[in-house]
């Protein structure tokens, strides 16, 4: 019991310390102290196997994992102690005190009878005895923990894994265009807009190339499939007709054609009349 009375205050103090230290690393160290003390207590309670496991698994593996994550997250991060949720801290403390007092009082009041002790159970060695039980009575639970551990490992892998993305730069895109041009002759520049050089900028009128032929790539494939593409030269003629009907002054370059067709459009024949009225 001497060990207990020495260790118990240490454990309580370390546990309380976890509540009050500002840095997570300090908390981890306090927890480590708690775990090791607990391991010693296991020894006094005739559980040598758990003593070993506690030290190896908890202090060795789990706390190291904690520290490792702390390194990733940032060792220096200190936590603000200003409570943001209203009433959370006070209620927590009250609940904690009442719960702790109740449990302690109850645990202190009950009488458990004489302690049987584990001499008999551990007669063939603690580890052998545990193995006997574990692989007989608890074997299914033991197998289930195997599944649990594998699932946990996979889950951790999936959660922690980060896909590596290749960043696309202007340079690489430009290189790719040039490579495409070299290999398949694909036009490296932007497509001509419809209506360029065609004197008509409707989306269904193809652009004209410098030699006067329509540029098929300036028209949407959908319009071609529908067959609603119009002829650019024909549109050019109609533009002059519209201009005449609107009574705009003819540009010198098209004056000839407008004189030819002056007499056969109704709008044009109406013009003299209006002029006469004005006079």
């Amino acid at each position: 019991m001497i060990a207990f009375w020495i260790l118990a205050p240490i454990m309580v103090v370390s546990a309380l310390g976890v509540l009050f230290v500002r840095k997570a690393v300090h908390a981890a160290l306090l927890v480590a102290a708690l775990m090791i003390s607990l391991a010693v207590l296991y020894l006094t309670l005739e559980a040598p196997f758990l003593f070993v496991v506690q030290i190896i698994v908890y202090t060795g593996a789990i706390l190291m994992l904690f520290l490792f994550v702390l390194m990733l997250v940032g060792v220096d991060t200190t936590e603000s102690f200003v409570e943001t949720i209203r009433g959370q801290r006070a209620t927590s403390i009250v609940f904690g005190l009442v719960l702790g007092l109740t449990l302690v009082l109850v645990a202190g009041q009950i009488t458990l009878g004489t302690v049987v002790g584990l001499e008999e159970a551990n007669s063939g060695g603690n580890i052998e005895a545990l193995a006997n039980i574990l692989f007989s009575r608890w074997v299914f639970a033991f197998e289930a923990t195997a599944a649990l551990l594998i699932t946990a490992a996979l889950g951790a892998l999936v959660l922690a894994h980060q896909e590596k993305t290749v960043k696309v730069t202007q340079r690489s895109l430009s290189d790719q265009r040039m490579r495409d041009y070299a290999e398949s002759g694909k036009h490296p520049g932007p497509l001509p807009a419809p209506g360029v050089y065609a004197r008509h900028n409707a989306v269904d009128t193809p652009a004209l190339l410098p030699d006067g032929t329509p540029a098929p790539s300036s028209i949407s494939r959908v319009l071609v499939a529908r067959g609603t593409v119009r002829s650019a030269p024909a549109e050019a003629d109609r533009v002059e007709k519209f201009a005449r009907e609107l009574g705009e002054p003819q540009r010198p370059s098209t004056a000839e054609s407008s004189m030819e067709s002056n007499s056969d459009t109704p709008a044009a024949s109406a013009e003299p009349g209006t002029e006469g009225e004005q006079a």
Partner: peptide, 29 residues
């Protein structure tokens, strides 16, 4: 050797842990 002190200690530690869960904000803590 009675185990009552162990149980009491267990209760105290449990309560301290619970209060810690409720009051600390750092997820690791």
């Amino acid at each position: 050797m009675s185990i009552t002190p162990y149980i009491v200690l267990s209760a105290i530690l449990f309560t301290i842990g619970a209060v810690g869960v409720l009051t600390r904000r750092n997820a690791i803590v």
